[in-house]
């Protein structure tokens, strides 16, 4: 594959990029030619090259977020030709290569669009809302002290595998960006399930799902309409089965929290 493509000649495309100087400022699409692009460049390298050119002529470079550039941090986020993370399946923007495009293509690059992800500049959005959701319950409370023996808590292999699938979420926000309702259900479902599937996650299971969904609602995300656009763009291919699982978990927790007897301990009982 690589050999076949590496003989391909360099080519040129037109970038149509959303430029916006800052929050609450007017934004617009601006066209930039990207010439003499190697098909083996990554999409972000191509943006670097275009930015070098802009800097040389004294223009403001295109702001885009990136960090690991190997698909594990979830920082790079933009919508390329109407699809978050661009062409390809199970990859992040940083793993898109220019060989996915052809000579003369117009590539439209937009930021992730969601009210809960306010725009900072150009293609950079503030995805703090995800951190808030995590802080509401995406953890387990443990007492520090001597570390328990490894494997002292048995975990069924299937549960461990499933929890690992959920845990592969890198929190990039593509699920929100792809959803027609800007819903964060896939993200929250992955985070809820990751812990809810493990024995260590059980004590706070109900509290966790109730608190994380509450924080999700408060952040201004939309509502899931079960169309599964989210899992179709997830760079980690996290399945929307986790959403069904979270719905079940949430409803059970909601009913339990209303019918569970309340202990008198806080009033000084035994």
């Amino acid at each position: 594959m690589v050999a076949e493509h590496s003989v391909k000649k360099n080519f040129s495309v037109t970038l149509r990029v959303w430029r916006q100087a800052g929050p609450n400022q007017p934004g617009k699409f601006v066209d930039y030619p990207a010439t003499d692009i190697s098909p083996d460049m990554s999409f972000l390298e191509m943006l670097d090259v275009v930015n070098d050119g802009l800097t040389k002529i004294g223009d403001e470079p295109i702001a885009f977020a990136h960090d690991c550039r190997e698909g594990i941090c979830g920082t790079c986020s933009c919508t390329i030709n109407g699809k978050p993370h661009g062409p390809g399946k199970g990859i992040a923007t940083c793993q898109v290569y220019m060989r996915s495009f052809g000579e003369g293509d117009v590539i439209v690059v937009e930021p992730f669009r969601a009210r809960a992800f306010p725009l900072i500049k150009d293609l950079v959005t503030n995805r703090e809302a995800f951190d808030k959701i995590q802080q509401a319950g995406g953890f387990i409370s443990v007492r520090t002290g001597a570390a328990p023996d490894a494997n002292s808590i048995p975990v069924p292999k299937e549960d461990a595998d499933l929890a690992m699938d959920a845990a592969s979420c890198i929190g990039c926000g593509a699920c929100v960006a792809a959803c027609k309702n800007a819903s964060a259900m896939l993200f929250v479902a992955a985070k809820v399930s990751q812990l809810g599937l493990m024995p260590q996650g059980q004590p706070e299971r109900d509290k966790r799902v109730l608190a994380m969904v509450k924080t999700m609602d408060e952040a201004g995300f939309g509502n899931c309409s079960n169309q599964y656009e989210c899992s179709a763009v997830c760079p980690k291919l996290i399945t929307h089965d986790f959403i069904a699982r979270m719905n079940r978990d949430y409803l059970a927790a909601l009913f339990r929290s209303n019918f569970k007897p309340v202990s008198g301990a806080s009033d000084g009982g035994a």
Partner: peptide, 19 residues
Amino acid sequence: ESRAARGPEAYAIKKWLSA
């Protein structure tokens, strides 16, 4: 709620993937 959640700017290119 879902309409409002998209935010102030709509996408220029709208695509359906799996719906």
